[in-house]
């Protein structure tokens, strides 16, 4: 069980309000991703839930129990750190067994659980090695193993993939998703990478400057961003924003259109191609359009357009409209 509720949670370091006040409910079994630019308070929020920092005011309840003032050990949560934070002087076996030993579990049960976790995570052959002898991906698995053996109410992940190389990251991402599907335990995952957020989350929480900008399912955020910040943050490449007369024509202060929602061919906009990147599956163009500015365009497949070409563009998908305060209309 792992339903976590934050009520007016505030965190100040000295005079600075890092988190001015957050209300959030995380349902049991949900995979929630906190995403936002660095310094947005997402890691602090996770550490507040973990109990590694204490809240300045507000309450945190876990499964209906007030956990605001409980020490980390008593909250029944497990955490996977960015640096993995493995104990370098212990073997993998001892690393994974450590939380069980701390809980005073008997040796036989400890061994049983460690063996099972090792089987699930493909670590059986490495059990008697030390963290220093493992690859980055294996260390990551050990850190996860250490978290799952406790059967916690929820898992907390603090940018767990940022120390891995790109190829490994994709693999681990899938493994964590599969783990969630099989364990069905609440997971809270912090990242600055919106791709990780989109691919893994049941629910994304977009944070900026300590505030929640929007909460919702990945596609909901993609399709209906509530404001300019979320619109710009979710989706890659970034959404194009247009101000001025073109926006006024749509009765908005700013309009946004995603690169994949612009078609090359006949259309109202005309411009010169600056940069063109051809990836085979996609082509990305930067087009300087008169009276509008530079638009990023994503076309599927190969396209015979190059630097210096003059092309016409047409919107082919949703145009997002925002008012002067950046809120969606």
């Amino acid at each position: 069980m792992g339903k976590i509720e934050l009520t007016r949670v505030r965190k100040a370091f000295g005079e600075v309000d890092v988190i001015p006040g957050i209300d959030l409910t995380i349902e049991d079994g949900e995979f929630v991703v906190f995403v936002g630019p660095s310094g947005c308070g997402k890691s602090t929020l996770l550490r507040l839930i973990a109990g590694l920092e204490d809240t300045t005011s507000g309450t945190i309840t876990i499964d209906g129990r007030d956990a605001t003032h409980l020490p980390p050990a008593k909250r029944g949560l497990a955490m996977v750190f960015q640096s993995y934070a493995l104990y370098p002087h212990m073997t993998v076996r001892k690393n994974i067994a450590f939380p069980l030993k701390m809980a005073g579990m008997d040796r036989a049960e400890q061994d049983r659980r460690v063996e099972r976790a090792a089987r699930v995570l493909n670590l059986t052959d490495s059990l008697d090695r030390r963290p220093g002898q493992l690859s980055g991906g294996q260390r990551q698995r050990v850190a996860i193993g250490r978290a799952i053996v406790r059967e916690p109410a929820a898992f907390l992940f603090d940018e767990p993939l940022s120390n891995l190389d790109a190829a490994l990251r994709v693999g681990m991402r899938q493994e964590i998703s599969e783990l969630h599907q099989s364990l069905k335990t609440t997971m809270i995952y912090v990242t600055h990478d919106q791709v990780e957020a989109m691919t893994m989350a049941d629910k994304i929480v977009v944070l900026n400057a300590g505030r929640i900008e929007q909460v919702g399912a990945p596609l909901e955020l993609y399709n209906n961003p509530r404001n300019l910040f979320v619109a710009g943050f979710i989706g890659s490449p970034k959404m194009n924003f247009i101000e001025g007369p073109e926006a006024a024509r749509h009765d908005a202060h700013t309009i946004g259109i995603r690169p994949e929602h612009i078609a090359v061919g006949d259309g109202p906009w005309e411009g010169v191609v600056g940069l063109s990147e051809h990836l085979g599956s996609d082509s990305f163009l930067k087009v300087a359009v008169e009276g509008i500015g530079t638009l990023t365009v994503r076309a599927v497949g190969e396209i015979g357009v190059h630097h210096g070409d003059r092309i016409r563009l047409a919107p082919s998908g949703k145009i997002h409209r925002f008012d002067a305060n950046g809120l969606a209309l």
Binding site: P72, Y87, P99, A103, R150
Partner: peptide, 8 residues
Amino acid sequence: EAARMDGA
């Protein structure tokens, strides 16, 4: 911190 999370 990991140790603390692990219940130490």
